[in-house]
Design a protein around this nucleic acid. Structure first.
Length: 207
DNA sequence: CGACCGATCGTCT
DNA sequence: GACGATCGGTCGA
């Protein structure tokens, strides 16, 4: 996959919108980039999941719950929210909507673009196969993101999201239920997962 | 390909 | 003391 044009960093207005589903869809095709002391790694976003805040049982902020662990999800649009799952995976989320409205979007898969050698070094993998950036735990490992980055933002730091002009058409996108949120009862059925049809980096079962 | 299982530990009850 | 917004390996059909 090639870069299609000049990379333009997304501005706060992209994240400062009320419709977390629309933003989740809009994030498909955008490029997530990390630059740690010149070590640049990036990948195109091909799978996202929306978490709709206080009214969503699958959201950490359900019912207005608020703890220090999840403080970042209540931050301003463009804030980074990373938490540890199962004691070993750091899951990267984009915070959207206004401050104190805890909307978040989990980035579940990328198609690698730059810095594949660095990603191999970070993950300890020997081959750049489709597992390199498939699944939210692998995304964070490959791009070097960890919970220490939680609370930072995508507008002025070493982690950001760019737009190189690529757009997916409607028939290239599939919408499904979220993965791994069975505990959320009826909210587990919400169609909040957005994937690029047929992309080999997308997690979960093949269709 | 599907089902299951162990790893691993910070956070909240 | 229990539980995850997961992953990778194994086992059986």
């Amino acid at each position: 996959m090639y870069m299609t044009g000049t990379m333009k960093k997304l501005s706060e207005s992209f994240y400062d919108r009320t419709d977390v589903l629309k933003i989740s869809r809009d994030l498909l095709g955008k490029v997530l980039i990390t630059n740690f002391s010149g070590e640049i790694t990036s990948g195109r976003i091909v799978e996202t999941e929306a978490y709709a805040g206080v009214g969503d049982r699958a959201s950490h902020a359900f019912g207005g719950k608020r703890t220090s662990r999840m403080e970042a999800v209540y931050g301003s649009p463009g804030t980074i929210y990373i938490y540890i799952c199962y004691g070993m995976h750091h899951l990267f989320n984009v915070v959207t909507n206004k401050v104190n409205i805890p909307h978040a979007i989990l980035i579940r898969a990328l198609e690698p673009l730059e810095g594949i050698e660095i990603m191999l070094k970070r993950t300890g993998k020997k081959q750049a196969d489709f597992t390199l950036t498939r699944g939210p735990g692998n995304v964070s490992r490959a791009l070097g993101m960890a919970k220490e980055h939680s609370g930072g933002n995508l507008l002025s730091g070493e982690i950001f999201i760019g737009d190189d002009g690529l757009r997916y058409k409607k028939d290239q996108i599939v919408i499904t239920r979220r993965i791994g949120v069975e505990y959320a009862r009826e909210d587990a059925e919400r169609l909040y997962r957005f994937i690029v049809k047929g992309n080999p980096y997308v997690s979960g079962k093949k269709s």
